[in-house]
Amino acid sequence: MTTVADTPLPEARRREVMRQALSVGAATGAYGISFGALAVASGLTVLQTQALSLLLFSGGSQFAVVGVLGAGGFGLAAVAASTLLGVRNGLYALQTSRFLGVAGLRRLAAAHLTIDESTAVGVAQPERAAQRLGFWVTGVAVFVGWNLMTLVGALVGNAIGDPRSYGLDAAAAAAFAALLWPRLRSGDAVATAVLAAFVALVAAPALPAGVPVILAAGAAVAVGLRRGGRHERPPSPDAEPHGADPLP
């Protein structure tokens, strides 16, 4: 999976990219333990939890599924919240498809591995061969680590009993806050977050669980369109895709 076309990378560069990719993979994979524990705490079985990490493989969307279901929301609301959060992966794919040059089965594999981290490491490299190596190694490393640690978290979460007494339900909000935090870099992002939280809380007492979160997506539309006429500085080239703007 790490065969690289075009000009081969010098050994020193290859090792540099590998080190970066594997360290991102190890760090991110470790978060899987919190997903596994929170998923079983919200009522999913170990198998359902593992299916999300294997097949959905996008942290924010996975947390959204278990968050909405755990709060008693109905299935379609969980799917909608998860899917709206996954839109950014499709945008990353527009970028990564330019340097990966994949077709057929390799394209399906690349699509599955297109997430925050693999995109970030890939686009950060100056040479094409390093972009490809960085994307694939990061994607596979995160996939393996995330899935193994999901299993550990799910088994531990299952074994310890009532999740409420360990505060695991409260940890879900902290997980979402930690995912949100690095995105709050612009005034628009902060305005969107405040408006979205407000909409969700106003709607919560009146609507079924999960629906307020979907309604809050309107905050992105309201803020994004409102500022449409104003000129903003372009995103800096070294901004991580974690940040506000996933587009080049």
Binding site: G60, A81, V87, R88, L195, A197
Partner: peptide, 10 residues
Amino acid sequence: IALLPVALLA
């Protein structure tokens, strides 16, 4: 599109 995850996570 860039603001969507911000709104949902918040």
